[in-house]
Protein backbone atom coordinates (compact mmCIF):
# COMPACT_ATOMS: atom_id res chain seq x y z
CA UNK A 1 0.00 0.00 0.00
CA UNK A 2 0.89 3.69 0.05
CA UNK A 3 4.56 4.39 -0.27
CA UNK A 4 4.53 7.20 2.29
CA UNK A 5 6.99 5.64 4.66
CA UNK A 6 8.63 2.34 5.21
CA UNK A 7 8.42 3.01 8.92
CA UNK A 8 4.62 3.09 9.02
CA UNK A 9 4.34 -0.69 9.43
CA UNK A 10 6.91 -0.67 12.17
CA UNK A 11 4.84 1.89 14.03
CA UNK A 12 1.88 -0.48 13.96
CA UNK A 13 3.85 -3.48 15.17
CA UNK A 14 5.68 -1.44 17.84
CA UNK A 15 3.49 -2.71 20.74
CA UNK A 16 4.54 -6.20 19.80
CA UNK A 17 8.21 -5.23 19.55
CA UNK A 18 8.16 -3.60 22.98
CA UNK A 19 6.37 -6.62 24.49
CA UNK A 20 8.76 -9.00 22.75
CA UNK A 21 11.82 -7.24 24.12
CA UNK A 22 10.50 -6.72 27.65
CA UNK A 23 8.54 -9.87 28.34
CA UNK A 24 10.08 -12.49 26.06
CA UNK A 25 13.58 -11.70 24.80
CA UNK A 26 14.95 -10.18 27.99
CA UNK A 27 13.46 -12.85 30.31
CA UNK A 28 14.65 -15.55 27.94
CA UNK A 29 18.26 -14.39 28.12
CA UNK A 30 18.01 -13.52 31.81
CA UNK A 31 16.84 -16.99 32.73
CA UNK A 32 19.78 -18.46 30.84
CA UNK A 33 22.11 -16.24 32.84
CA UNK A 34 20.34 -17.00 36.12
CA UNK A 35 20.75 -20.70 35.53
CA UNK A 36 24.48 -20.21 36.12
CA UNK A 37 23.96 -18.35 39.36
CA UNK A 38 22.91 -18.84 42.92
CA UNK A 39 20.11 -16.39 43.61
CA UNK A 40 17.85 -16.42 46.67
CA UNK A 41 16.22 -12.98 46.07
CA UNK A 42 17.90 -11.57 49.20
CA UNK A 43 21.38 -10.93 47.86
CA UNK A 44 22.25 -10.32 44.23
CA UNK A 45 22.82 -13.33 41.91
CA UNK A 46 26.17 -15.00 42.46
CA UNK A 47 27.91 -16.65 39.51
CA UNK A 48 28.49 -20.36 40.16
CA UNK A 49 29.29 -21.59 36.67
CA UNK A 50 27.95 -25.03 35.88
CA UNK A 51 27.26 -25.93 39.52
CA UNK A 52 23.48 -25.96 39.14
CA UNK A 53 23.61 -28.23 36.11
CA UNK A 54 26.18 -30.46 37.69
CA UNK A 55 24.01 -30.87 40.78
CA UNK A 56 20.93 -31.50 38.63
CA UNK A 57 22.46 -34.30 36.66
CA UNK A 58 24.54 -35.99 39.32
CA UNK A 59 23.15 -35.40 42.78
CA UNK A 60 19.48 -34.50 42.53
CA UNK A 61 17.29 -37.57 42.98
CA UNK A 62 14.14 -35.45 42.89
CA UNK A 63 15.11 -34.17 39.46
CA UNK A 64 15.68 -37.70 38.16
CA UNK A 65 12.29 -38.76 39.41
CA UNK A 66 10.58 -35.63 38.13
CA UNK A 67 12.19 -35.93 34.71
CA UNK A 68 11.19 -39.55 34.26
CA UNK A 69 7.65 -38.82 35.42
CA UNK A 70 7.47 -35.94 32.94
CA UNK A 71 8.72 -38.04 30.04
CA UNK A 72 6.30 -40.87 30.82
CA UNK A 73 3.48 -38.37 31.13
CA UNK A 74 4.21 -36.64 27.81
CA UNK A 75 4.90 -39.79 25.82
CA UNK A 76 1.71 -41.45 27.05
CA UNK A 77 -0.59 -38.41 26.95
CA UNK A 78 0.24 -36.98 23.55
CA UNK A 79 -0.10 -40.15 21.41
CA UNK A 80 -3.19 -41.29 23.32
CA UNK A 81 -4.87 -37.94 23.02
CA UNK A 82 -4.02 -37.44 19.36
CA UNK A 83 -4.98 -40.98 18.34
CA UNK A 84 -8.29 -40.61 20.10
CA UNK A 85 -8.90 -37.15 18.62
CA UNK A 86 -8.16 -38.41 15.13
CA UNK A 87 -10.29 -41.52 15.56
CA UNK A 88 -13.31 -39.53 16.73
CA UNK A 89 -12.79 -36.96 13.98
CA UNK A 90 -12.78 -39.71 11.35
CA UNK A 91 -15.96 -41.24 12.78
CA UNK A 92 -17.57 -37.81 12.87
CA UNK A 93 -16.50 -36.93 9.35
CA UNK A 94 -19.44 -38.56 7.70
CA UNK A 95 -22.77 -37.27 6.57
CA UNK A 96 -24.19 -37.41 10.06
CA UNK A 97 -27.07 -35.09 10.89
CA UNK A 98 -25.97 -34.55 14.44
CA UNK A 99 -22.35 -33.71 13.62
CA UNK A 100 -22.52 -30.27 15.25
CA UNK A 101 -24.11 -31.62 18.39
CA UNK A 102 -21.38 -34.21 18.84
CA UNK A 103 -18.65 -31.75 17.99
CA UNK A 104 -19.95 -29.44 20.70
CA UNK A 105 -20.20 -32.21 23.28
CA UNK A 106 -16.61 -33.27 22.64
CA UNK A 107 -15.28 -29.74 22.60
CA UNK A 108 -16.72 -28.59 25.93
CA UNK A 109 -14.13 -30.40 28.10
CA UNK A 110 -11.29 -28.70 26.18
CA UNK A 111 -12.80 -25.31 26.83
CA UNK A 112 -13.02 -25.94 30.57
CA UNK A 113 -10.12 -28.34 30.88
CA UNK A 114 -7.45 -26.17 32.45
CA UNK A 115 -9.68 -24.69 35.11
CA UNK A 116 -9.38 -25.32 38.81
CA UNK A 117 -13.02 -26.39 38.91
CA UNK A 118 -12.32 -29.30 36.56
CA UNK A 119 -9.35 -30.39 38.64
CA UNK A 120 -11.66 -30.30 41.67
CA UNK A 121 -14.20 -32.39 39.78
CA UNK A 122 -11.47 -34.88 38.90
CA UNK A 123 -10.58 -35.25 42.55
CA UNK A 124 -14.15 -36.12 43.41
CA UNK A 125 -14.98 -38.49 40.60
CA UNK A 126 -11.76 -40.47 41.13
CA UNK A 127 -11.98 -40.41 44.93
CA UNK A 128 -12.03 -43.75 46.77
CA UNK A 129 -15.82 -43.66 46.99
CA UNK A 130 -16.22 -41.35 44.00
CA UNK A 131 -18.25 -41.63 40.84
CA UNK A 132 -15.85 -43.89 38.93
CA UNK A 133 -15.46 -46.42 41.72
CA UNK A 134 -19.21 -46.44 42.34
CA UNK A 135 -19.77 -47.20 38.67
CA UNK A 136 -17.12 -49.91 38.70
CA UNK A 137 -18.78 -51.40 41.79
CA UNK A 138 -22.13 -51.54 40.02
CA UNK A 139 -20.61 -53.82 37.37
CA UNK A 140 -18.77 -55.86 39.97
CA UNK A 141 -15.26 -54.47 39.72
CA UNK A 142 -13.28 -53.78 42.88
CA UNK A 143 -12.61 -50.12 43.66
CA UNK A 144 -9.33 -48.72 42.36
CA UNK A 145 -7.11 -46.46 44.42
CA UNK A 146 -6.81 -43.82 41.68
CA UNK A 147 -4.76 -41.18 43.50
CA UNK A 148 -3.41 -42.94 46.56
CA UNK A 149 -1.43 -45.55 44.66
CA UNK A 150 1.74 -44.19 43.01
CA UNK A 151 1.23 -46.66 40.16
CA UNK A 152 -2.16 -45.20 39.26
CA UNK A 153 -1.89 -41.51 40.07
CA UNK A 154 -0.03 -40.50 36.92
CA UNK A 155 -2.50 -42.43 34.78
CA UNK A 156 -5.40 -40.59 36.39
CA UNK A 157 -3.72 -37.27 35.60
CA UNK A 158 -3.13 -38.49 32.05
CA UNK A 159 -6.83 -39.26 31.68
CA UNK A 160 -7.66 -35.68 32.56
CA UNK A 161 -5.55 -34.48 29.67
CA UNK A 162 -6.96 -37.06 27.27
CA UNK A 163 -10.46 -36.06 28.27
CA UNK A 164 -9.64 -32.71 26.68
CA UNK A 165 -9.05 -34.12 23.21
CA UNK A 166 -11.72 -31.80 21.74
CA UNK A 167 -9.56 -28.99 20.42
CA UNK A 168 -7.22 -31.38 18.61
CA UNK A 169 -10.29 -33.16 17.25
CA UNK A 170 -11.86 -29.95 15.92
CA UNK A 171 -8.64 -29.20 14.05
CA UNK A 172 -8.52 -32.74 12.63
CA UNK A 173 -12.16 -32.52 11.63
CA UNK A 174 -11.63 -29.23 9.80
CA UNK A 175 -8.74 -30.85 7.90
CA UNK A 176 -10.75 -33.96 7.07
CA UNK A 177 -13.61 -31.87 5.76
CA UNK A 178 -11.31 -29.99 3.44
CA UNK A 179 -10.10 -33.17 1.74
CA UNK A 180 -11.31 -33.20 -1.86
CA UNK A 181 -14.26 -35.65 -2.01
CA UNK A 182 -13.52 -36.57 -5.64
CA UNK A 183 -10.34 -38.29 -4.47
CA UNK A 184 -12.42 -40.67 -2.37
CA UNK A 185 -14.79 -41.36 -5.22
CA UNK A 186 -11.94 -42.04 -7.62
CA UNK A 187 -10.34 -44.45 -5.15
CA UNK A 188 -13.65 -46.20 -4.50
CA UNK A 189 -14.15 -46.71 -8.23
CA UNK A 190 -10.68 -48.25 -8.36
CA UNK A 191 -11.93 -50.70 -5.75
CA UNK A 192 -10.13 -49.42 -2.66
CA UNK A 193 -11.77 -50.31 0.66
CA UNK A 194 -12.38 -47.82 3.47
CA UNK A 195 -9.17 -48.69 5.33
CA UNK A 196 -7.07 -48.40 2.18
CA UNK A 197 -8.66 -45.06 1.37
CA UNK A 198 -7.96 -43.81 4.87
CA UNK A 199 -4.41 -45.10 4.91
CA UNK A 200 -3.35 -43.96 1.45
CA UNK A 201 -5.47 -40.86 0.79
CA UNK A 202 -6.85 -39.31 3.95
CA UNK A 203 -3.87 -39.83 6.21
CA UNK A 204 -1.21 -38.39 3.87
CA UNK A 205 -3.39 -35.36 3.11
CA UNK A 206 -3.85 -34.44 6.75
CA UNK A 207 -0.23 -35.00 7.82
CA UNK A 208 0.39 -31.22 8.07
CA UNK A 209 -2.37 -31.00 10.67
CA UNK A 210 -1.13 -34.07 12.49
CA UNK A 211 2.28 -32.46 12.61
CA UNK A 212 0.84 -29.18 13.93
CA UNK A 213 -1.18 -30.95 16.62
CA UNK A 214 1.77 -33.11 17.57
CA UNK A 215 4.06 -30.13 18.15
CA UNK A 216 1.50 -28.02 20.00
CA UNK A 217 0.31 -30.85 22.23
CA UNK A 218 3.86 -31.90 23.08
CA UNK A 219 4.95 -28.38 24.01
CA UNK A 220 1.86 -28.00 26.18
CA UNK A 221 2.08 -31.41 27.81
CA UNK A 222 5.63 -30.66 28.96
CA UNK A 223 4.23 -27.61 30.75
CA UNK A 224 1.27 -29.24 32.49
CA UNK A 225 0.85 -27.68 35.91
CA UNK A 226 -2.73 -27.16 37.08
CA UNK A 227 -3.86 -30.77 37.03
CA UNK A 228 -1.11 -32.37 39.12
CA UNK A 229 -0.70 -29.30 41.33
CA UNK A 230 -4.35 -29.13 42.33
CA UNK A 231 -5.31 -32.79 42.22
CA UNK A 232 -2.33 -34.59 43.73
CA UNK A 233 0.18 -31.85 44.56
CA UNK A 234 2.79 -34.01 42.86
CA UNK A 235 2.23 -37.05 45.06
CA UNK A 236 1.95 -39.74 46.18
CA UNK A 237 5.68 -40.38 46.47
CA UNK A 238 6.32 -37.79 43.73
CA UNK A 239 4.62 -40.04 41.18
CA UNK A 240 2.94 -37.01 39.56
CA UNK A 241 5.67 -34.50 40.30
CA UNK A 242 6.08 -33.09 36.79
CA UNK A 243 9.01 -30.76 36.09
CA UNK A 244 6.86 -27.58 36.04
CA UNK A 245 5.82 -28.38 39.62
CA UNK A 246 9.43 -28.85 40.64
CA UNK A 247 10.37 -25.56 38.99
CA UNK A 248 7.50 -23.81 40.72
CA UNK A 249 8.47 -25.18 44.11
CA UNK A 250 12.12 -24.29 43.68
CA UNK A 251 11.37 -20.78 42.40
CA UNK A 252 8.37 -19.67 44.41
CA UNK A 253 8.51 -21.77 47.56
CA UNK A 254 12.21 -22.12 48.31
CA UNK A 255 13.16 -19.00 46.28
CA UNK A 256 16.07 -20.79 44.68
CA UNK A 257 15.82 -18.80 41.44
CA UNK A 258 19.12 -19.90 39.95
CA UNK A 259 18.49 -23.59 40.40
CA UNK A 260 14.88 -23.25 39.20
CA UNK A 261 16.13 -21.49 36.08
CA UNK A 262 18.55 -24.34 35.41
CA UNK A 263 15.69 -26.87 35.60
CA UNK A 264 13.60 -24.65 33.32
CA UNK A 265 16.43 -24.59 30.80
CA UNK A 266 16.81 -28.35 30.85
CA UNK A 267 13.07 -28.64 30.24
CA UNK A 268 13.33 -26.06 27.46
CA UNK A 269 16.26 -27.92 25.89
CA UNK A 270 14.29 -31.17 25.88
CA UNK A 271 11.29 -29.50 24.26
CA UNK A 272 13.51 -27.81 21.69
CA UNK A 273 15.40 -30.96 20.76
CA UNK A 274 12.14 -32.87 20.33
CA UNK A 275 10.65 -30.04 18.27
CA UNK A 276 13.73 -29.94 16.05
CA UNK A 277 13.59 -33.71 15.58
CA UNK A 278 9.93 -33.37 14.64
CA UNK A 279 10.67 -30.62 12.12
CA UNK A 280 13.59 -32.51 10.68
CA UNK A 281 11.64 -35.74 10.36
CA UNK A 282 8.62 -33.92 8.95
CA UNK A 283 10.35 -33.76 5.56
CA UNK A 284 9.95 -37.52 5.43
CA UNK A 285 6.35 -37.88 6.47
CA UNK A 286 4.50 -34.58 6.18
CA UNK A 287 2.90 -34.07 2.82
CA UNK A 288 2.54 -30.53 1.51
CA UNK A 289 0.41 -30.07 -1.54
CA UNK A 290 2.55 -27.07 -2.41
CA UNK A 291 -0.32 -24.64 -2.56
CA UNK A 292 -2.80 -22.84 -0.32
CA UNK A 293 -0.05 -22.20 2.20
CA UNK A 294 0.63 -18.55 2.81
Amino acid sequence: MGGESKWMGLWYVSPYVIGLLLFTAFPFLASFYLSFTDYDLLSSPEWVGLDNYEKLFTRDRTFDKSLSVTLIYVFSTVPLKLAFALFIAVVLNYRLKAINLFRTAYYVPSILGGSVAIAVLWRYIFADTGLVNMMLASIGIDPVNWFGDPNNALFTITLLRCWQFGSAMVIFLAALQSVDKSLYEAAAIDGAGPWKIFRHITLPLITPVIFFNLIMQTVQAFQEFNGPYIITDGGPMKSTYLLPLYIYDKAFKSFDMGYASAIAWVLFAIIMVLTLIAFWSSKKWVYYAGDKRS
Binding site: Y16, L20, L22, F23, T24, F26, P27, F28, A30, S31, L34, I215, V219, F222, Q223, P244, I247, A251, F252, M257, A260, S261, A264, W265, L267, F268, I271, T275
Partner: peptide
Protein backbone atom coordinates in the same frame (compact mmCIF):
# COMPACT_ATOMS: atom_id res chain seq x y z
CA UNK B 1 9.74 -14.29 16.30
CA UNK B 2 5.93 -14.50 16.38
CA UNK B 3 6.16 -18.14 15.33
CA UNK B 4 9.05 -18.79 17.70
CA UNK B 5 7.13 -17.25 20.62
CA UNK B 6 4.19 -19.44 19.72
CA UNK B 7 6.36 -22.46 20.38
CA UNK B 8 8.43 -21.02 23.22
CA UNK B 9 7.49 -22.66 26.51
CA UNK B 10 6.47 -20.02 29.05
CA UNK B 11 8.28 -21.94 31.71
CA UNK B 12 11.61 -20.58 30.51
CA UNK B 13 10.64 -16.90 30.75
CA UNK B 14 8.51 -17.05 33.89
CA UNK B 15 11.14 -16.50 36.57
CA UNK B 16 12.78 -13.38 35.08
CA UNK B 17 9.32 -12.01 34.30
CA UNK B 18 8.49 -12.40 37.96
CA UNK B 19 11.73 -10.68 38.95
CA UNK B 20 11.03 -7.86 36.50
Amino acid sequence: TVIATLLLPNVVTRIPQYLL
